[in-house]
């Protein structure tokens, strides 16, 4: 059987992402990678928490952060998590067209999130003169939030590449694991963001 055959929905196995050995390996390996990423972000959070009192002048978390923007960003990212769940739902039902559509929506929401984040950084730098170099708090803030933003950017490129590459081919057992791991990655980005808006913004605002 060639992998390039578009599978007849009637023949598609129950879990197309785990139907082949390669798929099983990818699935497991990617989860383990996320286990490692947990430690990576914990180290960044730890550094941030250790340094979040090391501010310079008026640029404290309480003065800087505006919750309205963060709230919108949170809603965007949470919703994008749901849309990628819908995409995987349609993958399991072998509805390739709808899966692609929901992924496009996910990418659009992710792009909006990233746009707001860039605006936020721009705003801090130009309105408050709060930069990566101005204090240890600044370094820690931009590194933690920036690492998350970098993950978002990477995820967007990844999902976009998958959408374009497979548009003409449809779903098969070769690319199903790729879609599935990309969606896991996207959810993990959301997991990290939940802690960022809680620990950095909300707790920063409370003081």
């Amino acid at each position: 059987m060639s992998h390039d055959d578009v599978l007849n929905p009637k023949q598609m196995p129950h879990d197309p992402e785990k139907a082949t050995l390669e798929g099983k390996n990818k699935f497991l390996g990617f989860w383990f990678f996320l286990g490692g990423e947990t430690v990576l972000f914990a180290s960044l959070f730890g550094t941030y928490l250790a340094l979040n009192g090391s501010t310079q002048g008026e640029n404290t978390p309480e003065n800087l952060f505006g919750l309205e923007l963060v709230f919108i960003m949170t809603m965007l990212l949470l919703t994008s998590s749901l849309t990628s769940v819908y995409a995987m739902y349609h993958m399991k039902n072998h509805d390739f067209g709808k899966m692609q559509l929901w992924l496009v929506i996910t990418v659009a929401l992710g792009l909006a999130f990233l746009g707001f984040e860039i605006y936020e950084f721009y705003h801090y730098i130009h309105e408050y003169d709060f930069t990566f170099r101005s204090s240890a708090f600044g370094s820690a803030f931009y590194t933690l939030v920036g690492f998350h933003g970098g993950h978002v950017l990477f995820g967007l490129c990844w999902i976009t590449a998958l959408i374009i590459r497979n548009q003409k081919r449809g779903l098969n057992l070769y690319n199903a694991p790729k879609y599935y791991t990309a969606s896991l990655y996207w959810h993990f980005i959301d997991v990290v963001w939940v802690f960022i808006f809680t620990v950095v913004y909300l707790m920063g605002k409370v003081g």
Binding site: T47, F132, A136, S139
Partner: peptide
Amino acid sequence: MFGSAFFDVALGGN
């Protein structure tokens, strides 16, 4: 390489 202050005690690093 990029002038951050994580370990620069003068800027509050640790």
